[in-house]
Amino acid sequence: MEILMTIVAGTLFTSGVYLILSKTLLRIIMGLSLFTHGVHIMLMSINGLKRGAAPLLEEQAASYTDPVPQALILTSIVISFSLTAFSLVLAYRTYKEHGTDDVERLRGQDHE
């Protein structure tokens, strides 16, 4: 299971990086989104996925899933959600102001 999830995370990283390197703002944001999802899946699977019990401890729990990575990705998902929302608004405003969403054409003359 962990090996499968690692491959999934790797695929997400690859496609994320590919999209980040493209030239359209919307694709870049999609790429960032996929990249962070890859991170989340990696974080989730890094301490083992199936340990035979829920992350609830009883007095003499024989097995339990480590709850910490789950708490971490929950926080991380919320943060990346707000970042995606903000960058979508930013991309829209940039498109409105510059009249293009091509990063090549965003290069201004303002810099020497």
């Binding site: 870049i28 991170v39 890094i46 990575p69 971490l72 510059h98 201004g108």
Partner: peptide
């Protein structure tokens, strides 16, 4: 200019933050 620079800044920082989370995961 501000919007253009913010786009660059935000992309770089999101990638860096993702790498930070990866490093935390490894360290954990």
């Amino acid at each position: 200019v501000q919007l253009r620079e913010t786009v660059k800044y935000i992309v770089i920082n999101i990638v860096a933050s993702s790498l930070f989370v990866i490093a935390i995961a490894y360290l954990y």
